[in-house]
Nucleic acid binder design. Structure first.
Lengths: 109, 109
DNA sequence: TAAATACATCGTAATATTACGATTAATAAT
DNA sequence: ATTATTAATCGTAATATTACGATGTATTTA
């Protein structure tokens, strides 16, 4: 028990859930906002910006990377992170599709 | 350890994280899609529709309700669930705001 | 080469989530 | 009243997440 039964859902449902899960943490929302705001990629600045330990930030970055939402490239000693444009657009589209299903007229209860 | 430090984030970041977390599970995505599709509210139909135990569906419904994303009203023996329009719209707006921050030109790395 | 810097990874403790059977509570039908 | 139906809740086992100190790794500077 305790393990999500991915096999009973559609490909899309599973993919969307994975990406939303990656965003569904205040630290990772803050990281994404920082990455976008800085435009130029930042790195360990996040550690001072947010109030979390370096290991924790690194772990959050890894999750965002695993979900494909950000990418990182080596920049000397540090690593430069930024939004992965394709995945970002794609997530936006998937969410639009979900929200588009609902018409305000669907009022019941 | 192991507990999210909500106090270091903004109100908005925390709220968005909570709502996204509520959606970030394939079963709950499926439930929301069903609720929207059925327009008329469904209830235990979800148990047969998805392949999960009744207790599990009930638990998922509770989480969606706690996040304020759905509402339920008693309808005889069964309970009628549907989207909570205000929260749904609000989430849509919050997400739009997040996505709007990113301009495609922000390419680095 | 040695020290410094920037991140990643490991190990671990605390906590949260997921799923389900069993039970309970409430309403409806007989 | 009794039984059936529907959904919530309880208890529990398995698993996942969150956070951090300590350590490892790679590059850069002295």
């Amino acid at each position: 028990m305790g393990v999500t039964k991915s096999e009973i859902y559609t490909e899309e449902q599973n993919r969307l859930a994975v990406q939303l899960k990656a965003i569904a943490h205040p630290a990772r929302i803050a990281i994404l906002q920082e990455l976008i705001k800085a435009n130029a990629c930042i790195c360990g600045d996040l550690v001072t910006e947010l109030g979390l330990a370096q290991a924790t930030i690194s772990q959050h970055l890894k999750e965002l990377k695993n979900a494909g939402l950000i990418q990182g490239t080596i920049e000397g000693v540090s690593i430069c992170y930024c939004i992965e444009p394709k995945a970002w657009k794609n997530l936006q589209n998937e969410l639009n599709t979900l929200f588009a299903l609902y018409k305000d007229t669907n009022s019941c209860c």
